[in-house]
């Protein structure tokens, strides 16, 4: 395992993928270091969620490479990438609805668990110890997310905002280095959005991670992110600090539609389904 100190945490170079004739993402590059919060914005169908799917191994990129702490991961399967330290949430919530809140987190701990089948069947002391430690860790995490009171409720019974928070907690339970949040504020009311912002800020300090954030809500993006990348039709049209992005004529054009092109098909939902 190559691990150089000057290598950035996440280094994405020129990745691209085409679905048939459609270049969903083209020449996308990104550098992310610990403690950074990077925003990814763009109109519907710009390729934001496809980028996430490339980063998490749902799709393998046609071109380019992705390195995590210097290690190439663009040929790895999703569970290997999760193991390497990239966790994500989903645009349309994907919890394990019939499992309890704490079990949702315990599933994420499976990756780092040292349990063996034989240990589980004979309930060896090591197994019970591991189980207890996992439970402890998850309860602490739930406590931080103010979900500890509901730890035994089925995940499906939580209200919408709590489900969004539980998804973030679950992603953190795999001890990631990079956290990908796919529209965490979608469907939230203004008050919940304020809470979410402080929660995300707290994550950067508390968990020693880097966050890549897709968000449509400009108040959330502009307040939180130090750097923003704007995508349109799969291409990066601007990168920079929030103030620069807001003033960039290309960005304004993409959002307000100064060019004639209209009727972009909604691509993100279907790309996420993957068969």
């Amino acid at each position: 395992m190559i691990q150089t100190h000057d290598a950035p945490l996440l280094d994405v170079r020129d990745i691209g993928i085409a679905f048939g004739g459609l270049r969903a993402v083209d020449h996308f590059s990104l550098r992310l270091d610990l403690g950074q919060l990077h925003g990814l914005i763009g109109p519907n169908g710009a390729g934001k969620t496809t980028c996430f799917n490339l980063l998490t191994g749902v799709y393998a990129p046609d071109t380019g490479e992705i390195r995590l702490r210097g290690r190439p991961i663009h040929h790895s399967r999703p569970h290997q990438i999760a193991g390497a330290g990239i966790a994500r949430t989903f645009q349309n919530i994907r919890l394990f609805p019939h499992l309890s809140v704490i079990e949702n987190l315990l599933v994420a701990c499976h990756l780092r668990s040292r349990q063996t089948i034989a240990g589980a069947i004979f309930e060896s002391r090591k197994h019970l110890e591991d189980e207890r430690m996992m439970e402890h860790k998850c309860l602490a995490l739930l406590d931080r997310f103010e979900l500890a009171d509901q730890s035994d409720e089925p995940a499906a019974s939580l209200c919408y905002g709590d489900q969004r928070r539980l998804e973030i907690a679950r992603a953190l339970a795999i001890d990631p280095k990079v956290l990908l949040l796919d529209e965490p504020a979608a469907g939230m009311n203004p008050q919940e959005k304020v809470q979410l912002k402080s929660l995300i800020r707290g994550l950067l300090e508390g968990f020693n991670i880097a966050i890549l954030l897709i968000e449509h809500d400009m108040s959330v993006v502009m307040d939180l992110c130090e750097q923003i990348t704007v995508l349109d039709h799969g291409c990066t049209i601007a990168t920079g600090a929030p103030a620069e992005i807001q003033a960039d004529p290309k960005v304004i054009e993409a959002y307000l539609g100064a060019s004639v092109e209209t009727g972009e098909p909604e691509e993100e939902g279907t790309a996420d389904e993957r068969g």
Binding site: T56, P78, H79, F90, L95, V107, A173
Partner: peptide, 13 residues
């Protein structure tokens, strides 16, 4: 419960 989420959470499905 959710195959895609399980895989993303590191489960070798």
């Amino acid at each position: 419960e959710n195959e895609i989420a399980a895989e993303a959470m590191g489960v070798n499905i």
